[in-house]
Simulated scan of single mutants.
Amino acid sequence: MDLRACFRPARTGAALTACILAVAAGPAAALSCLPWGPADAYLHAANSDRVYNVIAGELKFDESLLPQSHSDNPNDTPPLTRIPAQLSGKLLEGKYFSRRVSVSAVIEVECLGPWCGGMKSGADYVVFAEQRGQELVVRANACGGFAFDDTSTVRRQVLDCHRGKACEPAQPR
């Protein structure tokens, strides 16, 4: 069984369940991911000294720029790929996703050897975009990231955290 399939949910921005991958080529290599969900991202952003914008909306970018693992050397994947994107949706302000925005963003796709984060262009996400100067950065890594499928459950988790209600991380603290 090809255990790399455990990481396919990262391509949609969904939280990953705990997963261990082992590769038989050369010395054994493994990648373990802890559960990560919208509440984890919210708590990370809230406890960070960096500024995050939480936006629910559509993310568009050129999918051909996503890093791909090479079959002849799967570990020859760049560790970080920056992809220009456009994010259109509603910004979390006060108690709701209320202010319409259409902004440029950068998706930072991180790879750990052959395992990379990813997203789908044109899909709706709830993103935690880090403000770096004039740039908004959405991180996607092999074990999840800061973009989640825009569902009523995801929005409810984010809004509950934001309003001071139950904010239960998937990852034990």
Rank of each mutant, 00 (worst) to 15 (best):
S48A: 12
W36S: 08
W115C: 06
A85N: 08
V106Q: 14
A22K: 12
A85L: 09
N141F: 15
L92C: 02
T17V: 10
R163P: 05
R8A: 13
K60L: 08
E135L: 10
A39Q: 12
P169R: 00
P38M: 03
D72Q: 13
P35S: 04
R82D: 13
C161R: 01
I83W: 05
L159E: 01
F97P: 10
S71G: 03
C161D: 09
A140D: 08
G113I: 06
L34W: 13
E135V: 09
L43E: 09
G13F: 09
T153H: 14
Q171D: 11
A25S: 14
S152K: 12
V154C: 06
R100N: 13
R139A: 14
Q171M: 11
V158W: 13
A10R: 10
A85P: 07
A166H: 08
A22P: 01
C167A: 00
F97T: 02
G89L: 02
R11S: 09
Q131L: 06
R82H: 10
P38G: 05
V23T: 13
P78D: 05
T153Y: 12
G133Q: 10
K60T: 14
C143F: 11
L66K: 03
E58Y: 05
G118K: 01
N75S: 07
T153Q: 14
D160M: 04
R82P: 07
G37Y: 07
R132T: 12
R50Q: 15
D124Q: 14
A45F: 07
L91H: 11
N141V: 06
I83Y: 06
G118W: 01
N73V: 01
S32P: 08
A123F: 14
A123M: 11
G145R: 00
F7N: 09
P79H: 04
R155W: 14
S152P: 08
A22V: 09
P169W: 04
